[in-house]
């Protein structure tokens, strides 16, 4: 398909005049998508802040149910995965296939480590009777507010984890495509767009970590 003479790149979609227009359009589309993601998480952040201002003391106390060590560890893991993602995009832009695949796999591994720690934390909450609903057994002061905090904790980190799982799935697809020489120095926008998404999901965690894990520590 690649016809160098006419300047047509492979995987050029028919609705675009040239590769430049295609690249610009997909970049804009990705940013618009991330714009809706901001509002998506924004609504649940707004709910969090509303109840935090309503019950500041209970939320600070409830924050101590969470493990600071595990949260901090996961923060480092995620920031590390953003770094490996940057390297993957860089390698894709320079058309170095092996490096690109290695960095993509590294990003996936760090993402999976994050999810494993998260799963461990969830299981731990389950054993402690801190899962909201029928299984909630905490009966200390402000129990309903503690339950509210933990419910928001599960909702926010759960949505975040869902985004991570989708991201890891996309990374796996990119690895397979890269292996089939799908990308080159002239066509790498799927890798770059995935990078944008991955950084956004990391950024959400950068807000989640202080709001959920740190508010109770003085």
């Amino acid at each position: 398909m690649h016809d160098a003479a006419s300047g047509v790149v492979p995987y050029h979609a028919h609705q675009f005049d040239d590769a430049e227009q295609q690249y610009q359009t997909s970049t804009l589309g990705m940013w618009l998508f991330l714009g809706q993601e901001v509002l998506f998480f924004g609504a649940v952040f707004a709910t969090y802040f509303y109840y935090f201002f309503l019950y500041p003391d209970a939320f600070e106390a409830a924050s101590n149910h969470l493990s600071l060590t595990l949260g901090a560890f996961n923060t480092v893991v995620l920031i590390g995965s953003s770094l490996t993602m940057v390297f993957a995009v860089h390698a894709a832009q320079h058309g170095t296939k092996r490096a690109q695949m290695a960095w993509l796999v590294a990003t996936m591994i760090l993402g999976i480590v994050f999810l494993c720690v998260k799963a461990y934390e969830y299981t731990h909450k389950f054993h402690e009777g801190l899962v909201p609903g029928e299984l909630f057994t905490y009966h200390g002061p402000d129990a309903p507010q503690h339950q509210l905090f933990l419910c928001l904790y599960f909702a926010m980190t759960g949505l975040h984890a869902l985004h991570m799982i989708i991201g890891i799935g996309i990374l796996a697809a990119l690895v397979l495509l890269a292996n089939r020489d799908w990308f080159n120095a002239g066509y790498y926008s799927p890798v770059e767009m995935t990078g944008l998404y991955w950084h956004f999901v990391d950024l959400v965690w950068i807000f989640l970590f202080p709001l959920l894990y740190l508010i109770g520590r003085h």
Partner: peptide
């Protein structure tokens, strides 16, 4: 783009 994600979360919280 700016409105729909908010109703999504609202309905999700309601369902929870």
């Amino acid at each position: 783009i700016l409105g729909t994600p908010v109703i999504a979360i609202t309905l999700l919280l309601m369902m929870i």
